[in-house]
Design a protein around this nucleic acid. Structure first.
Lengths: 119, 119
DNA sequence: CGATGGGATCGACATTCGTCAATATGTCAG
DNA sequence: CTGACATATTGACGAATGTCGATCCCATCG
């Protein structure tokens, strides 16, 4: 995992995926593999302005404020969300590269061996 | 989650992603969010014939046989791998639709709000 | 039939995770 | 500076997870 929290984009096939790459990818997937965090990303990504204030989220999710804060910082650390402090409030937006990279890695594996001649 | 283990393909945005959809998606992601299981998928997807015998996997992964068996059945239950029993041996191949669907869901969210006018 | 061996299941264990109440930190309004 | 409020951090607790040894199940081979 590099500085940005985005793993190095291993192709998930072609090579057996090194232990380090697997660990980095797993960490990123784990950051996303929770119902609350998925709804968090969905809410932020789907908002009209593309960003959301943390103040509305405990209500929208039915979770206590520390719980939401915990999930948010987890998503930021993984490079999935960006946090910006504006005065008293914290605003979040998705970092598109991270999810796009994930999509590429999985799309590759999903599409590869469908109708390919054996070597 | 339906019978095949594949969630209903919620778009991750547009709507806030219902609690049920979020739970289903999270379950699928959790099945993938482990280094050993990622290497498992990578090994199977990248194999020359597109399928792999379980007998080789404990050695390739450096994990005990019950551990590998546990991870394999987890991937099968999630709809990521298919198991076929051939005589004494169990063979596995990836189910491309599942990973492709995951890729679509994430690609959608990753690409949407990049250069869109604010409404 | 019994012996062999691949693979699943069970039981136990340490570790990680999701959650919230209590508290701390920080920022603005007066 | 003080009071009010938004967010982060801490501490605790139950639940889930990854791991492996021991064991069980079952298909094949003599």
């Amino acid at each position: 995992m590099n500085r940005t929290g985005v793993p190095c984009c291993a192709p998930l096939l072609r090579e057996p995926l090194s232990e380090d790459d697997a660990t980095a990818l797993a960490e990123l997937l784990k950051a996303l593999a929770d119902p609350v965090r998925l709804r968090l990303v969905s809410l932020v990504a789907g908002s009209a302005s593309g960003e959301l204030c943390a103040c509305d989220l405990p209500g929208a999710l039915g979770r206590a404020q520390p719980t939401v804060s915990h999930h948010l910082s987890m998503l930021v650390k993984a490079g999935i969300l960006d946090r910006e402090q504006r005065g008293k409030w914290a605003w979040f937006r998705v970092r598109p590269e991270t999810l796009a990279m994930l999509s590429d890695v999985l799309g590759d594996a999903g599409r590869s061996r469908s109708a390919e001649p054996l070597r």
